[in-house]
Amino acid sequence: MVSTVDLTYPFKGRWLTQNSPANRVPSHGTTLLATSFAIDFVPVDEAGRTAPITFGSLLRPEPAERFPGFGRPIFAPVEGVVVGVHDTAADHAAFRGLPSVGYALTQRRRAAAGWVALAGNHVMIETHHGPVVALCHLQRGSVQVRPGHSVRAGETLGRCGNSGNSTEPHVHVQAIDRLEVLHAAAVPITFEGRLPRNGDIIEAG
């Protein structure tokens, strides 16, 4: 069994690291659905910021299109074969401030609905050495690959979205030891030989 999967960054430009296992394991605060070593990357602008916070954004949901990374291309971080795709989940509004509290209260319902409800639109790639890498929360209708498609690292998979369990546009990356997520174990991941920490700004491309 492979102990760690080393990936290339699945994006270009500036991205903020969040929920990194470099800071804690399980990185997302739960072992649910093999997310112990999962990591999130949030697209930001040249100043390292997401959409500006206004008084309105603290009181009501915001259009996902308002965020700088919505629609940015997402690339395969590893060579392998596509073994899972979902591309029909809607991109919902983003939630910050008070709206994020209400959104958090619906998390139990989404978790009960299963993997797809949490992952939203996603691509799963089985690597040549065994583990499966999942990239989640993609933009609806953006996925360009299908199961059985062989991909190379750097090949376009889709675009950054806000589908599934997501409060603002970002990409969630995790590796698991088998395709059946409910029965899978989490596999540690690194990116180009290192694991970025929470708050790191990644300049890729």
Score class of each variant (00 low, 15 high):
A112H: 08
A112L: 13
L98S: 05
P131Y: 05
A184Y: 04
M1N: 08
G164E: 07
A134P: 00
H149L: 01
A89Q: 11
P10M: 09
P68N: 13
E65F: 05
L179H: 04
P99A: 14
T54M: 10
S3Q: 15
T4C: 07
W15R: 00
L16W: 03
N23E: 12
E79W: 00
V44C: 09
L16E: 04
S27R: 01
V145G: 07
P169F: 10
N19A: 15
A47G: 08
F75E: 05
A47H: 11
R159S: 15
L179C: 02
P68A: 14
V173A: 03
A64T: 06
F41A: 10
Q139V: 01
E203H: 13
V85T: 06
I125P: 01
V42Q: 08
N121E: 13
L135R: 02
L58R: 07
R109F: 10
T4R: 11
S36T: 03
P52C: 15
N162C: 15
E180F: 00
L157E: 07
T8C: 04
V151H: 02
T50L: 10
V83T: 08
Q144K: 14
A90E: 12
H86S: 12
I176F: 00
H183T: 05
I189S: 08
A51S: 10
V143H: 04
Q107D: 11
A89T: 07
A153H: 05
A47Y: 03
T127Q: 05
G164T: 04
L195C: 09
D177M: 03
G148N: 12
C160V: 15
T8Q: 12
D40Y: 03
H183D: 11
R110E: 15
F37E: 03
T31Y: 12
E203D: 15
E155H: 06
I39L: 06
I201W: 10
V82Y: 03
S57A: 13
A64F: 06
S27F: 00
P99K: 08
F191S: 06
L98A: 15
L182P: 02
T30W: 03
F75M: 09
D6P: 00
W115L: 07
I189A: 08
T190H: 06
R140I: 10
G161A: 09
P147E: 12
V2K: 09
I39R: 01
M124W: 03
R146V: 13
H183N: 07
L58M: 14
P73I: 12
C160Y: 04
V173I: 15
L98G: 02
H172Q: 11
L157I: 08
D45C: 11
T156V: 13
L32M: 10
G205Y: 09
A47T: 12
V173N: 00
D6V: 01
H28L: 06
G102C: 05
P131S: 10
